[in-house]
Design a binder for these strands. Structure first.
Length: 795
RNA sequence: GGGCCCAUGGUCUAGCGGUUAUGACGUCACCUUUACAAGGUGGAUGUCCCCGGUUCGAAUCCGGGUGGGCCCACCA
């Protein structure tokens, strides 16, 4: 007998024809006027100037499983691809490529360099997604529903500016002169979320201060002696017995001879250093909070370019590190430095450029967020977190928010702050919404100032934080303010899939900002993934040389073994997944098995005449029905792991080893030992199980299932409905009974060293299996059969 | 310093109050059995991290350790 399927196994070569077909498949396009319910996914826009890495490959594949499942469940699925092109990474790439700094060339020139970098970043990542079989709505760039969008497009930036204008007009954005995290490398203020910490070796210097009232010499330990001119207070712990007499007195700083109060404050720890701390208005965040608390005017001695300013007296003009050296030398010369101890100091550094953070005062725009903390906590309950345990990270972050969100940046390749200022009276000119504004080079939308009638204006030169852009992604994909009718019907996004590490940024800022704009919780479900790590459990990194490139995987094995591996290997919402070539290749064996199961089944026609099901048929139909039940329930909860393991087990064990072996003879029916309708029972069941199995697997392995379904049914499996749960048949035995019986027979023949085809002289088995008697006799060449309460095989 | 997560044969993993502790990869022996040698059958490999507790009974629940990871944090 000939199988419909000629090829002996699944090959990655089959994939190409499919992704080229899918590229323009209207099945995956988003139909705005469809009457199906909408399921919308706020796909994370990957950064364009780095190729797709293992984490992307795995998580987008799982997102695709989600999208494909929902599509089969009858939803109109909005699954667009976005491309992130804004912000620092592009600027840094441009700086590297053209060996310059953004502030060394004109803004105009620098933006051209950024564009150059972006042009060359090409469509590589888009191509990778296609090869992975991701069924995005569209592969064309555009502004329509479901089309590929770019975060630096005029349309996207227009929306970002619209949200700024709305929030500004609501009075939620204000400009304030405040101490900020400042990165001397990026030359811009950065948000708390952009700070990293690193242990940097430093020196603890014991410096001599004088008590003005008594002339007593007191010793203060500091790692930042150059900040002595910024010292605003000296503190000791209220419990510290050594210093009680200093309370209320005045300390005189060395070399600068400024007078500062001495007070007790719990911030000082008794055991640390000498127990006395000099509080400077530029040390780190704790100092800043302290100054705010105590209401002391900060003395800023570091300027924007990272050098000391007028307040630093004789240190003026020096770089911070030089100033520190100079201070140490001068203190030594005057015998004011009594001890130096090397320490490692946990230092705040810039997440991107790795420079040590300085704290300086600048004018910045802020979006009010502190006053919304309670609302944000309440809103968290409106979202379902997958996995639920991850919610804690989100709540912890909300609870820890202590200052408003600084949203302006002093960089170039980002969305401009859409404001002008009147040169006459300083009046802020807020433009109307609906256009992309570049105030640094454009004229304002008004001819003269409404206040003072001046005709001269200055455009704002700052840009917005990249998270201010990113936080409108669900609004953008749902066409908020672009397609009012659509957004009204779909004003919440079904799913935000994203990484665990950006909960405090992308997730928090999106929920927060979109709440301010829409008064709703923008997401219904949030799917948070952990990471792909190497086979030893270590983070993949270029420097360690343990990277696995998904392009290699695609080259070697194709998308399918990888996609199956993604599902089978573990639940990425609960734990990191360890990745190795070996295990991905191993996952591919299941594809071969599935392929051969399909080849076998397709040797037979799906019967059209009378069908009589034996208990064996009913049993396996119940088994597959349980899989339908499980898959539906778990896929619904974004769990592809549990069903994929069960499906794999079904393919290898339940279906192949047990059912198939039992009914082979009936399916062939060469000796006409079975009635036609009995044979049909096997054929029907074989086809039914295979088709159902393929449909259950279609979201996970879309290529192989499509190929097989096409061969067998001449239809596109991805247009099919997901199988429904049926009623189970009444039968008297369970899987365990079958497994036990077959195992016993195989073992008996093996022990007797006879062929599996050799006859069983006598078989004693449980009454329960009576309904499968004929299948069992034929499968194992049983000559005589008896029913009892035990299993016994005589060969 | 705080929070969260993890610890099961060589490696990875399931189980989450009663199992002869699941499966995968690897490994060993045997076998061409009309879908599949990218196969089949069978085997070996485990103080389920440690110490206590709850319980008739713990890999599973609780407490405390130890080791590892991630995130957060206000230290001079």
């Amino acid at each position: 007998m000939e199988s419909k399927i000629a090829e002996k196994s699944w090959s990655k070569e089959f994939e190409k024809a499919f992704y080229e077909k899918w590229k323009n498949n209207p099945l995956y396009a988003f139909r705005r006027n469809s009457d199906k319910p909408v399921y919308s996914i706020d796909t994370p826009p990957p950064y364009v100037n780095t190729p797709v890495h293992m984490g992307h490959a795995a998580t987008y594949s799982i997102m695709d499983m989600i999208a494909r499942f929902r599509r089969m469940m009858g939803y109109e699925v909005l699954f667009p691809l976005g491309l992130d092109r804004n912000g620092l990474p592009i600027e840094m790439a441009a700086e590297k490529k053209f060996k310059t700094k953004f502030n060394r060339v004109s803004r105009e020139e620098f933006l051209l360099m950024c564009n150059k970098v972006l042009e060359e970043s090409s469509a590589e990542s888009v191509d990778s997604f296609m090869k992975l079989g991701i069924a995005f709505n569209s592969w064309n760039k555009g502004t329509g529903l479901g089309e590929i969008y770019e975060t630096d497009s005029n349309d996207y930036r227009t929306l970002t500016q619209e949200t700024f204008i709305d929030l500004y007009n609501q009075g939620l954005i204000y400009e304030d002169d405040r101490i900020n995290n400042y990165c001397p490398g990026c030359m811009t203020t950065i948000a708390d979320a952009e700070i990293d910490y690193k242990d940097i070796p430093s020196t603890f210097n014991d410096v001599v201060f004088t008590v003005k009232e008594t002339g007593e010499k007191i010793i203060i330990g500091t790692t930042r002696p150059e900040l002595i001119p910024s010292c605003g207070m000296v503190i000791f712990n209220p419990e510290d017995k050594r210093y009680q007499h200093l309370n209320g007195k005045t300390a005189v700083t060395p070399l600068f001879n400024t007078e500062v109060p001495i007070k007790a404050h719990p911030l000082a720890e008794i055991d640390k250093g000498t127990g006395l701390v000099m509080m400077c208005s530029a040390g780190d965040l704790s100092d800043i909070r302290f100054f705010r608390e105590m209401g002391i005017a900060p003395i800023i001695s570091i300027s924007i370019d990272g050098t000391m300013n007028d307040n630093a007296g004789f240190l003026k003009g020096m770089k911070i590190k030089d100033a520190r050296e100079k201070m140490i030398q001068d203190l030594k010369a005057d015998n004011l430095l009594v001890k130096q101890v090397p320490v490692t100091h946990r230092t705040p550094i810039c997440e991107r450029s790795k420079h040590e953070i300085e704290f300086i005062s600048m004018k910045e725009y802020y979006l009010k967020q502190v006053e919304f903390k309670d609302k944000m906590l309440a809103l968290a309950d409106k979202m379902n977190f997958y996995d639920e345990s991850i919610k804690q990270i989100y709540l912890d972050w909300i609870n820890s928010v202590s200052i408003d969100w600084p949203i302006s940046r002093r960089r170039y390749y980002a969305t401009e702050v859409p404001l002008w200022y009147c040169n006459g009276c300083g009046q802020v000119i807020v433009p109307p919404k609906g256009k992309y504004y570049k105030p640094w080079k454009e004229k304002p939308p008004v001819k003269e100032c409404p206040e003072c009638h001046s005709k001269e204006f200055t455009g704002d030169t700052r840009v917005l934080d990249t998270w201010f852009d990113s936080s409108n992604s669900p609004l953008y994909v749902l066409k908020y303010s672009r397609d009012k009718e659509f957004f009204e019907k779909n004003n919440r996004c079904s799913l935000r899939p994203q990484g665990k590490e950006i909960i405090r940024t992308w997730l928090y800022y999106t929920v927060f900002k979109d709440f301010l704009l829409t008064k709703k919780c923008i997401f219904k479900d949030v799917w948070i993934h952990h990471h792909i790590i190497d086979e030893k459990g270590i983070k993949m990194s270029k420097s360690l040389g343990n990277m696995i490139d998904p392009h290699d995987i695609l080259e070697k094995f194709g998308a399918e073994p990888f996609r199956l591996w993604c599902a089978v290997e573990g639940d990425i919402t609960k734990t990191d997944l360890r990745c190795s070539y070996e295990r991905i290749e191993g996952a591919g064996k299941t594809l071969t098995k599935l392929w051969n199961v399909a080849r076998f089944v397709s040797m037979f026609e799906d019967p059209s005449g009378d069908v009589k099901l034996s208990d064996t048929d009913k049993w396996v139909l119940n088994e597959i029905n349980e899989l339908v039940k499980l898959s539906r329930a778990r896929y619904e909860k974004y769990d592809f792991h549990t069903p994929s393991l069960e499906l794999r087990h079904f393919i290898w064990e339940t279906f192949s080893s047990h059912y198939l072996e039992l009914v082979k003879n009936r399916a062939y029916n060469d000796n006409k030992l079975f009635l036609k309708e009995e044979q049909n029972g096997a054929l029907f069941t074989l086809h039914y199980c295979l088709e159902t199995l393929l449909k259950l697997l279609a979201p996970i392995i879309p290529f192989a299932t499509a190929k097989l379904y096409e061969e067998i049914k001449e239809k596109d499996i991805h247009s099919e409905k997901f199988p429904k749960v049926a009623d189970n048949y009444e039968i008297s035995f369970k899987k365990e009974d079958i497994v036990e019986l077959n195992g016993a027979i195989w073992k008996a023949k093996k022990d007797a060293q006879i062929s599996l085809k050799a006859p069983v002289k006598e078989l004693i088995l449980s009454h329960k299996l009576k309904g499968a008697e004929k299948d069992i006799m034929q499968a194992h060449s049983v000559e005589k059969i008896k029913f009892d309460d035990k299993v016994e095989v005589k060969v």
